Simulated assay, not measured.
Amino acid sequence: MEIRVEAHPFDLGAETNRFAARQSDMGAVVTFTGIVRDVAGGLDHMEIEHYPGMTEKALTAMAEEAVGRWDLGDVLIIHRHGPMRPDEMIMMVATAARHRASAFEAAEFLMDYLKSRAPFWKKEHAADGAGWVAARDEDEDALSRWEP
């Protein structure tokens, strides 16, 4: 299991290849990458803040829960912080399991929890000012499918 919270951009292809190369006994690898969107048009950049130490601990707990639920062989979570422009990658999740259903479900679980529960704060900066990104009801609703 590898959890990284970092300011610099990551190379999606290299990260995916490195993760997949260490999965000799797994039958499936699933990846997801989040990208900064300019939904309303005019976004200059998004800034993501976090509390070092607390964030890694929370992401590790999420990954450990996924490993326990789906018997995963490996998990990779990379999440950036700091300023990012539209079209830059924000985060990546990769899961490896013996069977594809487990790898897909675990990746979705991690993405839903990263979106709604991970301790990151996003602020959008545009020509008309800056504002914090509020939680969305649909993101909260997505969590309900993972309740026992």
Rank of each mutant, 00 (worst) to 15 (best):
I3H: 04
F10Y: 06
D11N: 14
L12G: 05
L12D: 05
L12C: 13
E15H: 07
R18T: 14
R18M: 10
M26T: 06
G27Y: 13
G27W: 10
V30C: 09
T31Y: 05
T31C: 12
G34Y: 10
I35G: 00
V36P: 00
R37F: 02
G41M: 00
I48V: 11
G53Q: 02
A58Q: 09
L59F: 04
A61I: 01
A66R: 01
G68N: 08
G73R: 01
R80L: 04
R80E: 07
H81T: 10
P83W: 00
R85Q: 12
P86K: 06
V93E: 01
A96P: 05
A97F: 00
H99W: 04
A101R: 15
A103L: 04
A103C: 08
F104Q: 06
A106L: 07
A106I: 09
A107C: 13
E108P: 10
E108D: 13
E108K: 15
D112E: 05
L114K: 03
L114T: 02
S116L: 08
R117C: 15
D128E: 09
A130C: 15
W132P: 12
R136C: 02
D137H: 06
D137N: 03
E138S: 15
D139V: 02
E140K: 07
E140A: 15
D141T: 15
A142L: 03
A142F: 07
L143G: 00
S144C: 12
W146R: 11
